[in-house]
């Protein structure tokens, strides 16, 4: 293994995954390109979603890439922070809403 798990320079080598499977990589990158094109959602909205998801999956490469991309697409820093709070709210909410499950079980077990 390298001395660190993550190296910023590796982000630029993303395309190298084609080396060991050209066909699947081509399909993936084609799809990826299509996904981020403007549709019913604007390119900026998609970039902000990507930024929020990047924080949820905690991918440093994605955070690096979509911080720049969001700025390029004209997002404000405040807007970018709001996007991350959406991710955080869903994450926190996802834990907490399971509290109902815990309560159901606890209530059933208890006198």
């Amino acid at each position: 293994m390298e001395s660190t798990y993550y190296n910023p320079a590796d982000l630029k080598k993303f395309g190298n995954i084609a080396e060991w499977d050209k066909n699947l990589a081509a399909k993936f990158f084609d799809y990826y390109g299509e996904v981020f094109k403007e549709g019913d959602l604007t390119a900026r909205e998609k970039s902000l979603i990507a930024l929020a998801v990047a924080h949820t999956v905690q991918c440093p490469y994605c955070i690096d890439a979509y911080t720049t991309d969001s700025l390029e697409k004209g997002a404000t820093e405040k807007g970018m922070m709001e996007a991350i709070h959406v991710a955080a709210a869903i994450r926190g909410g996802a834990s907490l809403v399971h509290g109902v499950m815990m309560m159901n079980k606890a209530k059933k077990l208890s006198m």
Partner: peptide
């Protein structure tokens, strides 16, 4: 022009915004 060390986004989309 970008307010930092990044490239401008799509001209048409920025114009619309």
């Amino acid at each position: 022009n970008p307010t930092g060390a990044f490239l401008p986004g799509d001209q048409f989309q920025l114009q619309r915004d």
